[in-house]
């Protein structure tokens, strides 16, 4: 474990808590893409299958349980509890166009052709594009509540910090995983446009308005 990966995991944890609090406190999931949250639930389910077979550390196990539980809780809040506030009209990204390519790519490019490894690889590829429905929704509505933009900033930062972790691990342990690194770079790049808007607008107290 290193400081980059620890702060990355904490940023990830913070993002999930911000989102859960926003939905629970406002009793509304307006502006939140349910489709992205479904993709995240798929990502954690396919990535953490080794939860019961492999013990890495208490930290590792606890975080996996939290990510799994919170992602399903978020999907439940959006599609069941606060269904009336779910914005169907703006959450229209076709997630099958993200899932299928991730499946195909995972079958073609992986470290080992075993079920667990293929599913892990699929989850890595899917996570890199899982935020697209949310970013698409923000662009369609043309704006985002500031709490949603804080969520996106924390979520985008987590994989950015992981990139620093991978550089650190390559330098210190000469350990690297190209699949995770390439997907992590793609994932972080997708947030760049949003990061620019967040830093130039939201941090100045303005509302996040995308150019129409």
């Amino acid at each position: 474990m290193n400081i980059f990966r620890l702060t990355g995991d904490l940023a990830h944890l913070l993002a999930i808590i911000i989102l859960l609090l926003k939905i629970w406190k406002t009793r509304s999931c307006a502006g939140i893409s349910g489709k992205s949250q479904i993709l995240f639930a798929i990502v954690y389910t396919t990535r953490y299958l080794d939860l019961v077979t492999t013990y890495v550390s208490a930290y590792n196990t606890l975080m996996k349980i939290f990510f799994l539980g919170s992602s399903f809780a978020t999907v439940y809040l959006i599609y069941v509890k606060f269904k009336a506030t779910y914005d169907h009209n703006h959450d229209t990204f076709r997630i099958e166009f993200l899932i299928l390519p991730a499946v195909i790519l995972a079958l073609l490019i992986n470290h080992a052709f075993t079920p667990l490894e293929i599913l892990w690889t699929f989850s890595i590829y899917l996570e890199s594009v899982a935020i697209l429905p949310q970013l698409f929704m923000v662009s369609k509505t043309g704006e985002a509540e500031s709490i949603t933009s804080h969520y996106l900033f924390a979520l985008g930062s987590y994989r950015g910090l992981y990139i620093l972790n991978w550089i650190y691990r390559y330098a210190m342990e000469s350990h690297y995983d190209l699949i995770a690194i390439v997907a992590g770079i793609v994932q972080t790049v997708l947030y760049c446009d949003f990061f620019y808007l967040y830093i130039t607008k939201v941090l100045k107290g303005k509302k996040l308005q995308l150019p129409a």
Binding site: D9, V56, S57, M63, H111, W120, N165, H175, I179
Partner: peptide
């Protein structure tokens, strides 16, 4: 390569 090692990252 790295992938052979136990996956210790989230």
């Amino acid at each position: 390569k790295g992938a052979r090692r136990k996956k210790d990252e989230l």
